[in-house]
Amino acid sequence: MFNSMFRRFAFAYGAAFALFYALAHARGLALFTVYPAQGIVLLGLHRSRDVADPVLDFLAPEMYWYGWTASAAVGALVVGIVAALLPARLSPFWVWCAWVVPPMAMIACAYLTIPWFRL
């Protein structure tokens, strides 16, 4: 029983994490922003902005990866728990998701990364 629930949780969590990570990346849904040079962590997403002169982003580079990962982990945890509580006959669906969703999310992430390589 526990094994079956854990299987459903694991497959659903894996698929949902990949999906939510791609979404967090695309939508900028970072749970927090890290400023490693200053040792500062701020809740939510903070983008450098400017209204008059060129951005001085290099002074305080921000990192979103931790925030995206945390957002995806929280979302996937909820989906995993729900999947674990659902009937066992849905197990094949979660297995299918675990195979299909992560490759699609990887393609989406690769697409979202394209601007970094543009000059």
């Binding site: 400023y35 200053q38 500062i40 902005r49 400017d50 209204v51 951005v55 002074l59």
Partner: peptide, 16 residues
Amino acid sequence: FGLVMPEKVAEAVVKR
């Protein structure tokens, strides 16, 4: 600097 980054971070940047 607060115009381009959050105030807390701007404070740290100015100090440093």
